[in-house]
């Protein structure tokens, strides 16, 4: 058992690469730290860069998970290539859809203004409904309902 454990520290023998506990724990620490950072930056006004900063932090976290936890750094390059490829295609999907919908926002707004009268929200929101038993019955049944 000891001999095998020793063997598997070498990249070129055995089936996979065994990651040291210290490295895994370090990645967890970094991920938790970045979560704290994103909660703080997310609740602060960052002059319009909020989304960009949140996405940079999320991408950093994702890279750590992919490279270390998912072993991509020691894995076949093709897996990384294919995974990044899929993310790039998501980017194409996103970019084309965004530019396309931007083009029709005017029409959508015009249509929803035309349809305003058909919506219940043309009128202000009603006040919450007064409790059914208020006024005529104070026997304490209300508490039971809850």
């Amino acid at each position: 058992m000891t001999a095998q454990a020793h063997d598997s520290h070498d990249d070129h023998h055995g089936l996979g690469h065994v990651l040291p506990v210290k490295m895994l724990a370090g990645v967890l620490g970094a991920l938790l730290f970045l979560t704290l950072v994103t909660v703080i930056t997310g609740s602060t006004y960052l002059y319009g860069f909020d989304l960009a900063i949140a996405m940079v932090i999320a991408t950093t976290k994702a890279t750590l998970v992919c490279a270390i936890f998912m072993h991509l750094r020691w894995d076949k390059g093709f897996h990384t290539f294919a995974f990044i490829g899929s993310v790039l295609f998501v980017g194409v999907f996103l970019a084309y859809t965004l530019t396309d919908t931007k083009q029709y926002q005017g029409d959508i707004r015009a249509y929803s203004i035309d349809e305003t009268a058909n919506s219940a929200f043309a009128a202000p929101l009603q006040d919450p409904i007064p409790h059914a038993h208020d006024g005529d019955d104070h026997s304490g049944e209300e508490a039971v309902d809850h």
Binding site: A5, S8, G16, L24, V27, V65, F69, H71
Partner: peptide, 13 residues
Amino acid sequence: SFTAAMSVRNAQL
């Protein structure tokens, strides 16, 4: 996710 990565290590060893 950390414990999942650890479990891979445990299985390998």
